[in-house]
């Protein structure tokens, strides 16, 4: 395990992007932003504004053209994704379809699946925490969409990294189920205190668990601040335009299932 992980296993680590530029074909992005340690930051913005790209840069799935990515003060630019103090949950494909729930979670402890007794105990504990006790031997296809994302969260628990990146992981779930999952994330956050960056298209999601907000537009971070202020009348102009009219804007029209 890496030094970064030891440094921040208990608490979250601040995530900082310093003039990070990246381009994909015609589209280019420049991010210069800091996400506070141990907070849940909701990241919102129109499609194509760079939300997923930002998470991918932090996770190490994309390499910036210039600039630095710092986690807990350490430059992680040279580290491969698996060495960064980061866990990420995607919208789909979080599990290996041919492996049981238990083995999928176990991979968070050992990429060769050579698990010690302590690892097995941690896996069982994590599955219990996310409400999947008794389903250890199921295959992903025998689970509902919500349960599959719970497995992914269980793996986040056994990995125990100081930063958690959520890339619209609940976008394809129904409203009630989504609220349950958000509460689970919030609960886990209270226990572990990791830094959570949470991409979502749903203002309700951001309001439910978001402490801070970041609003992306045109490939850059247009505004940041405390979540409550964002949804206030004094919130950033661009953000209010994005939400449109309605209670807190009826922004949910833009969206729901973006392919990632």
């Amino acid at each position: 395990m890496t030094s970064a992980r030891k440094a921040g296993a208990e608490k979250g680590a601040a995530v900082r992007l310093e003039q990070v530029s990246f381009s994909y074909g015609e589209t280019s992005f420049v991010f210069d932003v800091e996400f506070a340690a141990s907070k849940i930051t909701a990241i919102m913005g129109p499609s194509g504004s760079g939300k997923s790209t930002l998470l991918n840069l932090v996770a190490g799935f994309e390499t910036p053209r210039s600039g630095r990515v710092l986690i807990g003060g350490a430059d992680v630019g040279a580290e491969p994704p698996s060495a960064r103090p980061v866990s990420m949950v995607f919208q789909e494909n979080n599990l290996f379809a041919h492996l049981s729930v238990e083995r999928n979670v176990g991979l968070g402890r050992s990429p060769s699946l050579r698990l010690t007794a302590a690892d097995h105990a941690a896996v069982a504990e994590a599955l219990k925490r996310v409400g999947l006790a008794g389903k250890e031997q199921r295959l992903p296809r025998e689970l509902s969409g919500g349960e599959r994302q719970r497995v992914a969260l269980a793996r986040v628990l056994v990995r125990d990294r100081p930063v958690l990146l959520l890339d619209e992981p609940f976008a394809s779930l129904g409203p009630a189920l989504r609220d349950d999952m958000l509460d689970l994330v919030a609960g886990v956050h209270v226990e572990r205190g990791m830094t959570v960056l949470f991409v979502t298209h749903q203002p309700e999601d951001a309001r439910r668990i978001g402490q801070n907000m970041a609003f992306l537009d045109n490939g850059t971070v247009a505004a940041t601040g405390v979540a409550a202020d964002f949804f206030d009348r004094s919130g950033p102009e661009a953000f209010r335009r994005y939400l449109g009219a309605g209670p807190f804007g009826d922004g949910s029209r833009d969206v729901a299932r973006k392919r990632t």
Binding site: A59, G60, P80, S82, N94, G108, P111
Partner: peptide
């Protein structure tokens, strides 16, 4: 991405 993340 999953393999890269988990170091497999």
């Amino acid at each position: 991405r999953l393999c890269a993340q988990l170091g497999i």
